[in-house]
């Protein structure tokens, strides 16, 4: 993996809020097909870093490169257009719409019937089903509101949507929180299949067990600076916790 070039590279990023250094000279790299867990206590700067990567706000200094090219992100739409997608647990889906409508939300394909333009619901459903099938997410009914799905299934639909729109980098904020154990396993399995497709994943979690189960590399932040980084196979939980608390 180290011989390929990074998908996403962040160099010497700093961000201040008022007098507080949220991030100071932080470096971060993500390779294709790699899962990097971002670990750190509350206030360590994890969410500030992911918000900069996803275009929510710009850094004060430092640079971001995506696929080897230096970029600046004006807003989240800009980041999504480049293929950097954040998967939020609660903000992702419109509960009252079906799976197809959610996958295509904001980008609905149109067809013509009786000479009138109409949303092509059949195509939305079929293409959504195709994408979900390739990820081995089998849902028995795609024509029901996603409200009827379990938390894990909804998470899968959100991830499937990101993949359908060619996301290269997925930032997953606590993807397994608020899920039951079997559902957590499904999401972790899905992460493995995304890896196989070359998607780079930034995985934020408080759950060390999940971090060790899912990630290739662990990057620890502490009070806005890089506190250390380990390949997951070489790391042990005690060491990571020590880095987190300092």
């Amino acid at each position: 993996m180290s011989e390929s070039s990074p998908l996403l590279e962040v160099k010497k990023i700093s961000k201040r809020f008022g007098g507080v250094h949220a991030l100071e000279d932080v470096d971060f790299r993500l390779y294709p097909g790699e899962v990097v867990a971002l670990a750190g206590d509350n206030g360590a700067g994890k969410s500030t870093l992911t918000k900069i990567i996803s275009g929510v706000f710009p850094p004060d200094s430092g640079e971001i490169s995506f696929q080897g090219v230096q970029i600046s992100l004006a807003n989240p739409q800009d980041a999504r257009a480049r293929g950097i997608e954040t998967i939020y647990q609660d903000l992702a889906l419109a509960d009252n719409l079906d799976v197809g409508a959610n996958v295509f939300l904001g980008r609905e394909p149109m067809t013509r019937r009786f000479g009138l333009p109409m949303i092509d619901r059949k195509r939305m459903r079929e293409e959504a089903a195709k994408t979900l099938d390739t990820l081995d997410i089998g849902l028995d009914r795609l024509d029901r509101p996603v409200r009827a799905l379990s938390g894990g299934q909804r998470q899968c639909v959100a991830i499937g949507r990101a993949l359908h729109w060619q996301a290269q980098v997925m930032i997953m904020d606590e993807p397994t929180a608020a899920l039951g154990v079997p559902e957590q396993r499904k999401v972790l399995a899905l992460i493995k299949s995304l890896k196989a497709r070359g998607v780079g994943i930034v995985f934020i979690s408080h759950n060390l067990h999940d971090i060790f189960a899912a990630s290739d590399r662990i990057v620890v932040l502490r009070r806005g600076i890089n506190a250390g980084e380990r390949a997951t196979v070489d790391a042990n939980p005690d060491e990571i916790v020590r880095m987190m608390v300092g």
Binding site: P76, D90, L93, D95, G106
Partner: peptide, 8 residues
């Protein structure tokens, strides 16, 4: 259904 999701 979900204003935030629509914005996003």
């Amino acid at each position: 259904g979900n204003r935030a999701a629509a914005v996003r």
